[in-house]
Design a protein around this nucleic acid. Structure first.
Length: 273
DNA sequence: CTGAGCACCTGAGGGC
DNA sequence: TGCCCTCAGGTGCTCA
């Protein structure tokens, strides 16, 4: 479900709904596992803690309290919703968090590829989910040098390089295709054959696509919603993603689709080289 | 080290 | 209507 723009919008909607400042009262675990075990320490350690900050690192949400950080990854189908008053349990609700204010915070995830883990603050850098993550694409650290030098001698397609979270984070299957289209680089191109000027262009296009998608509330293909239940609209502006055989928005050539780096990939063979 | 393929899981949609 | 197949926004593991 969610790439960087969607996770960023979940973060923003949670902030606007007043999650920061809420004090945990009770945590209900409705099952034992998501992708990893839901540890019972969640129910013991969080009560009494206050949410001090909600942030995002790569595709993870970080709920920070005085002593801990609650890490949440939405996998493909995870979602958080805030409920005022009684919770009507839905299918695939797995965790219900009660705050002292009466607000409820509910995690739903049909495929259960998500992750929810509590760590202490001093474990942040060493944490297994966070320690190997690459640079944030919207930060100053994501530069053309990094992309150019990082891709030298890489033979695999550039699209896979962009989706590998060890290199740059937050870019998934949708935005890799969209950014490559905007930069006019074919997703099949061996990463090491990227020219310097193209690396520069690609960095700018990744930023531009992600910013535009964030501003549009993310992309809702089937079920993505922010914590207020609002869908995104960037799917209406896809240039290539999920547009197999449809005319290229630039030249009219039918959009190609093929599995690259393990995922269905869309591009224009005329515009992208 | 790199890169490819598979695994995890449920549900939606298409073909028959 | 029902069955079977394929595919889906992610990512860690194993193997060559």
């Amino acid at each position: 479900m969610p790439e960087l723009p969607e996770v960023e919008n979940v973060k923003l909607s949670l902030q606007s709904q007043g999650l920061v400042g809420q004090r945990f009262q009770k945590i209900e675990l409705l099952r034992k596992n998501l992708r990893t075990p839901l540890r019972a320490e969640l129910t013991r350690k969080l009560p009494g803690q206050i949410v001090r900050d909600v942030s995002r690192r790569a595709k993870f949400l970080l709920f920070e309290t005085e002593s801990y950080v609650l890490l949440s990854h939405l996998g493909m189908t995870g979602s958080w919703r805030i409920v005022v008053g009684e919770v009507t349990a839905l299918k695939h609700d797995h965790v219900i968090i009660h705050f002292e204010s009466g607000l409820k915070f509910v995690y739903n995830d049909p495929r259960r590829f998500g992750v929810l883990e509590l760590i202490t603050k001093d474990q942040l850098l060493a944490n297994r989910w966070l320690k190997n993550l690459g640079v944030e694409p919207l930060s100053d650290q994501f530069t053309e040098e990094l992309l150019f030098l990082g891709t030298r001698k890489r033979k695999a397609p550039i699209k896979g390089f962009l989706m590998d979270q060890k290199n740059v984070v937050g870019v998934g299957n949708i935005y890799a295709s969209e950014a490559l289209f905007m930069a006019r680089v074919a997703p099949t191109r061996p990463a090491g054959r990227l020219k310097k000027t193209e690396a520069e262009k690609l960095v700018a296009c990744i930023r531009e696509v992600l910013h535009a998608a964030i501003a549009a509330g993310g992309s809702t293909i089937s079920d993505y919603k922010n914590s207020k239940g609002e869908a995104g609209s960037f799917q209406n502006r896809f240039s290539v993603y999920d547009r197999k055989a449809a005319p290229c928005v630039t030249c009219g050539e039918p959009i190609r689709a093929r599995v690259i780096a393990g995922r269905n990939t869309f591009w224009c063979r005329k515009c992208q080289r």
